[in-house]
């Protein structure tokens, strides 16, 4: 049966689960934000670089 009442140890049990949930959620959100931010930046810069320096097929 589901037991969500840790009795006198409630503070220690819920603090452990709360801290773990917050830390892992922060890690997931920050990792996704990090990857997304650099992907957008890289794509924008690569597009600009291609405009400035056309590839060999477009050069005379």
């Amino acid at each position: 049966m589901l037991d969500l009442d840790p009795g006198p140890y409630g503070f220690y049990v819920w603090m452990s689960y709360g801290l773990s949930a917050v830390a892992l959620a922060w890690l997931a959100v920050s990792s996704l934000a990090f990857a997304r931010r650099w992907r957008r930046r890289a794509e924008a810069l690569e597009t600009r670089a291609q405009e400035v320096e056309p590839g060999p097929e477009t050069q005379p």
Binding site: L27, A28, S31, L32, F34, A35, R37, W38, R39, R41, A42, L45, E46, R48, A49, V52, E53
Partner: peptide
């Protein structure tokens, strides 16, 4: 998480390379 962060690193380095070309 590791794969996502490595992907972010690859994009970061690609951005740095494009910035250097510009």
């Amino acid at each position: 998480l590791w794969l996502v962060r490595i992907r972010g690193e690859v994009w970061r380095r690609r951005a740095a390379a494009a910035e250097a070309r510009l």
